[in-house]
Design a protein around this nucleic acid. Structure first.
Lengths: 348, 348
DNA sequence: GTTAGCACTCACAACGCTAGAGTGCTAACA
DNA sequence: TGTTAGCACTCTAGCGTTGTGAGTGCTAAC
């Protein structure tokens, strides 16, 4: 039994209809709505085959069919069509990017909100992995006897500050000279390149000065290594309640609880090798998710860049009955614009 | 018809029982569970009176009674008892405060999480209103030709940075001198005291130098004025789904939507004059809330301080059928510890 | 290979019924 | 005059029954 043209057409019809209605699709519906030129009885036979092949499922004997995860997988890989993204949405994205460009975190949060609004799904964005961005400037600021502030600025003007606790006070003149020196040596390196061995070699070059500043340099190295606690922004979580598949409060609650686990979100948003890799879009469907609570969900993710480095991920989470085509178009357009404009900003 | 001792006892019993069971309370339940020494028939008569007085409501003819907003109000003002806060909760709070003290925002977020966990309600915390905190240090850092970073540190070591866009480049030596000068003049002032007139007078004192730095000073003044965008952290929102009063998904969704409106949250957490004002705890019950979606909710809020200034608010949001006594105890202990330890930190 | 026809299945809504909880009223009692 | 027992009444929630309609699979004819 092979998957001929007609079977594919019928599967496509079933999925399209189910995406719309969220109700099992019967053979009569297909023969009436999508004129394939055959009667419902024929379609019934084909559907029986499709079920045997595992692409569709019958919730109970006297109901229509719904797509299985395997069916969706086939759909996104072969059948899916990409609708044109509406102009006004592109405009909104551009506007946010231009307005909020000077503070990358708030730009990401705004984009997140917008994305959840236009998709009506739940959206996730991971903050830029600082390790991958290059150091633009660093500065040590005296605060009080026991503490100094370390300010780091990386590509894309991402500013971070950290309070360093020290044991012996350091005069502000010394701090200033140290700042200058560190800038000279470290500017242009990615943060992951600024590791303990590098700092050790710096110390040695500095001789007696290095000895004096031993502690501070250690703390700086350590701080930079641990700067990369990834933040994850989520938006439109309640959109989940709009889908009939989550009418059951318990099911929704389970999912919400899962989404509170930061580790899980980090995993979801971590880049993984997948078939659509070449076009920078990954789709995870239903059971392909590790988390039990997400077996009824799908996630579409894509990476965004700052400079020439992939630094973060954007994800759209919805029920497996998700409008994959629309989400994929929207996402790929979105990152395209982001990359474009961030690049412009950094060059200009 | 007056509110005699017995009526109060019966009202108390009704509320206690309803807080526990979430079911309308009948006269027989009360006569059996809370031995008031009178029969259910007598209690029935009293309940009829209490209903006429507006303290309790009968959902339908053949059901028991539930407290009205007016009933809860009387309860929190006269009848409520304050349970002793459990020791291990205090320990948890202390631990968080001590561990996270160097970054006040993350301390607040952790406390928020803990508070929602131990109360099982939804909790809100507003970030410190910087306007009320005193400037400890400020520093201008050169970034590139078109921008500099302004770092401000205020009481409680709250660090903020802002990217200032400038038209003509300023040499880093000049920026350093300017930083020093600003520190000398402005340290110890609250941010709301650093306003445009003050900056104007600074300019004049600086003479020709002031002229040169005209733009930068303007931008600084403006930035400091607008630094006070309040952030609001929310935790345990899904706890709402645990309460039978929000079993109706639509109702829960409405509430969630309301809680997405930042303006509303700001209003909820803004200090308001209220009866319990003297003990720094405010309670808003059901219809006393402005937002329509919150008519079935109550909010208990309290303020926290940094230094001698009230800078933020903590709130607990739950159904009107909330364990007011427990929430009030927990909250008042919490702020007490926070104040205590923050003060220690700043003095020591 | 396709289609019309038909018997069969099953979820779901509608309906009626019953049990149970709770009330209000009345009359008797202290 | 306040309290209580008794009783009729009300209303909800749960349960089983039934009917309907959507959808299927199978068979036989085209």
């Amino acid at each position: 039994m092979d998957l001929n043209e007609r079977k594919l057409k019928i599967l496509h019809a079933i999925i399209c209809d189910y995406l719309e209605t969220a109700e099992p699709v019967g053979s009569r519906t297909i023969s009436k709505k999508y004129n394939l030129g055959v009667s419902s009885a024929t379609i019934r036979n084909e559907m029986s085959d499709l079920e045997e092949l595992g692409f569709i499922i019958q919730p109970h004997t006297s109901a229509g069919r719904i797509p299985s995860d395997k069916g969706y997988r086939l759909y996104v890989e072969q059948l899916m069509e990409y609708p044109v993204v509406e102009m006004y949405q592109i405009q909104l994205v551009k506007q946010i990017i231009v307005e909020k460009i000077d503070k990358i975190e708030s730009m990401l949060q705004e984009i997140n909100k917008l994305l959840s609004m236009i998709t009506n799904y739940t959206t996730l964005i991971s903050s830029p992995r600082l390790h991958k961005t290059k150091l633009k400037h660093m500065q040590l600021i005296p605060l009080d006897e026991r503490s100094i502030i370390l300010v780091t600025v990386t590509d894309g003007n991402i500013v971070r500050n950290h309070i360093l606790n020290i044991t012996t006070p350091i005069p502000s003149q010394t701090l200033l000279r140290l700042s200058n020196m560190l800038n000279q040596r470290l500017q242009g390196l990615t943060l992951e390149q600024i590791n303990l061995p590098l700092i050790q070699s710096l110390k040695q070059q500095m001789g007696s000065h290095g000895l004096l500043l031993n502690d501070v340099l250690d703390v700086i190295a350590e701080t930079i290594q641990f700067v990369d606690e990834p933040e994850i922004y989520m938006s439109g979580a309640i959109n989940i309640l709009d889908f009939p598949e989550f009418n059951d409060v318990l099911k929704a609650k389970n999912l919400f609880h899962a989404l509170e686990e930061k580790d899980l979100l980090v995993t979801i948003l971590s880049p993984k090798p997948f078939k659509q890799q070449e076009q920078n879009i990954q789709i995870t469907i239903g059971n392909e998710n590790i988390a039990e609570e997400m077996k009824d969900c799908s996630v579409v993710t894509t990476n965004y860049r700052i400079g020439d480095q992939t630094v973060g991920t954007i994800g759209v989470l919805g029920p497996t009955r998700m409008d994959y085509g629309r989400v994929v178009s929207t996402l790929s357009h979105l990152v395209e614009y982001m990359d474009h404009i961030i690049k412009d900003l950094m060059d200009g």
